[in-house]
Design a protein around this nucleic acid. Structure first.
Lengths: 125, 125
DNA sequence: TCACTTATCGGTAACGGTTACTGATTAGTT
DNA sequence: AACTAATCAGTAACCGTTACCGATAAGTGA
């Protein structure tokens, strides 16, 4: 027995997959609470990190803001609106080649990169 | 009278300009403390943000880590070593054009973007 | 040179997001 | 059905940072 299929873990996974808008841990917690009123925040955080480590969901690190969780596990970029705080996908191709450029230039072993755009979204501008 | 030239503010500015390695607020505080033993952390944070807002230094937001401060105020990218936590400049050209791409595609007003590479630095790999 | 005003200070409390701890549950094996 | 350990709920603690507050001192103007 390695990992268990608990109702809480399944609820976390399905909630992330149902919410298509890069929710924060808190938002996921609030959503699950409607059905499982006494789930713990700790359980939500633990399972979000667990599922992200398994590669089933993606943890999106937004500078100076709460982490987001994404049902879309493909490599892609994000845009954060400075007004409303919402996070959107930035639909431009993933630039795998710049990893190598940095690796060659500095002698680093580059695992990946993130790009976060900032500005105002269509609604806020 | 708008802003004042205090010894604390000058110390913060000169310390950032002297430390060339993307120090955190805490590291800057510790460095200044050697000369000004009873400067307050709050004062360091306040002045770092003030100077960054004035454009005299740059605040570098690193996901899942403390903010860094950079004497280099030109637009450039960064690499964070997952082993030692150090932050280095990533010496590749700034891609101003991708801002427009995202703006055109989504109807956002894009102010800028950050790229943070991750992996192991030359010392750690 | 000397008040006078107020930006800034030091010290400390509080904040938001997250992780760590604890004893109680419960999923999956035998 | 009994067993064992992964996971739970609840809560305390953590880290980086900001907010507060009464005290200090930088710059103006007389």
């Amino acid at each position: 027995m390695q990992t268990r299929n608990t109702v809480q873990r399944n609820a976390v996974l399905h909630t992330v997959q149902a919410m298509k808008n890069h929710p924060t841990a808190e938002e996921i917690y609030l959503e699950i609470s409607r059905i499982h009123p006494n789930i713990s925040r700790g359980t939500v955080y633990r399972n979000l990190n667990f599922l992200a480590e398994q590669g089933v969901i993606q943890k999106v690190l937004i500078p100076d803001a709460a982490d987001r969780f994404d049902f879309n596990i493909s490599e892609h970029y994000h845009f954060k609106c400075s007004e409303c705080g919402r996070v959107f996908d930035a639909d431009i191709p993933y630039q795998r080649n710049i990893n190598e450029k940095v690796a060659d230039k500095h002698g680093f072993s580059v695992a990946g990169h993130t790009i976060v755009f900032s500005g105002k979204c269509a609604d806020c501008k």
